[in-house]
């Protein structure tokens, strides 16, 4: 009788089709349907071996993929959203939704942020988890990214943002919109100490995140096939009343149109960001010296 009440919670599954496959043995590609041994799929960083589709991964997984083992120190994990606007309706209870999503994902909001290193080179990181309310940007999101940028400025290290978002979080209204400006002002401090902001756009990245810090970084990288844009495909199709071509708003489309620097496969991402950190690295003492020389000439 006691055991009856101790029943373990059912694992979260989103569809019945997935239930037919034990989730610890096989992985099914969301794009081509190919079945891969889970271990092999994980070793390939969740990229399909058949069609190269890059599955969406969480901020925690991104940090595991990129950062030196045990280098990540998380900050601000205790920041939590509140219902600023009094957004309570039978259809939509913001605080209940936040609580349920926190329970499911094990995090308080979209962004996971902290300090890390690649091959010993230090940087600050703020990474989105699209699984948390569509990666939407509200007060907690904006605050965590702004703090990561300010920490980078204070420590004199680069900042890496990994951006996957549907846009601003409607439930926080004008406060959500203003987070775009908040992160922008924080970035002016990083610019002043001449440290780079590297933005990695992953699938999908739209709206307020794409129309603020993510699109004006010093270096912009994207994953192959990632959908990127300002307005969503559906909104544009409704406005212009015609079907859009399939490659529209992909990473490759934006590379072609001059909006990003490189499309980088996930397997090369750690090495690529490591390269960039090295290219911007400057010994502190000689940088100070150079600035003194420049100031002396003015």
């Amino acid at each position: 009788m006691k055991d009856f009440f101790r029943r373990a919670p059912l694992p979260f599954t989103s569809s019945r089709r997935e239930q037919q496959i034990p989730d610890n043995v096989w992985a099914k590609c969301a794009n081509c349907g190919e079945l891969t041994y889970q271990k092999q799929f994980n070793d390939a960083l969740k990229v399909c071996p058949k069609c190269s589709y890059h599955s969406r991964i969480s901020s925690r997984e991104w940090i595991e993929v990129l950062a030196d083992a045990d280098s990540f120190v998380e900050y601000d994990a205790d920041l939590q959203g509140i219902d600023i606007l009094g957004f309570v309706s039978p259809k939509d209870n913001y605080e209940a939704k936040l609580a349920a999503t926190s329970e499911r994902t094990g995090t308080n909001d979209v962004v996971m942020s902290g300090s890390a290193s690649i091959e010993g080179l230090p940087f600050e990181i703020a990474a989105c988890n699209f699984e948390f309310m569509g990666g939407s940007m509200g007060s907690v999101f904006g605050e965590k990214v702004a703090r990561a940028v300010e920490r980078a400025a204070d420590r004199g290290v680069p900042v890496l943002t990994i951006n996957a978002s549907g846009g601003a979080r409607m439930h926080e209204g004008i406060f959500a919109l203003m987070q775009m400006a908040k992160v922008s002002v924080a970035l002016t401090r990083l610019a002043r100490v001449r440290q780079p902001h590297i933005s990695l756009l992953v699938d999908p990245c739209y709206g307020g995140v794409s129309a603020s810090y993510a699109s004006v970084a010093d270096i912009i990288l994207a994953e192959p096939g990632a959908n990127i844009g300002f307005a969503g495909r559906r909104v544009i199709e409704q406005t212009i009343r015609q079907k859009l071509p399939p490659n529209f708003q992909t990473a490759e489309f934006f590379l072609e149109h001059g909006m990003i620097d490189a499309v980088v496969p996930r397997s090369d991402m750690r090495a690529t960001i490591g390269r960039l950190l090295r290219l911007y690295q400057r010994p502190t003492s000689s940088a100070d010296h150079r600035e003194h020389v420049v100031a002396g000439h003015q």
């Binding site: 775009m180 922008s184 004006v216 300002f230 307005a231 909104v235 544009i236 406005t239 859009l244 149109h257």
Partner: peptide, 20 residues
């Protein structure tokens, strides 16, 4: 404006640049 032309010419970047 949400349109194909606006996306091709970088609507997101244009807005983001002004904020910065």
């Amino acid at each position: 404006h949400p349109s194909m032309a606006a996306e091709e010419r970088g609507q997101a970047e244009a807005i983001a640049r002004n904020l910065l």
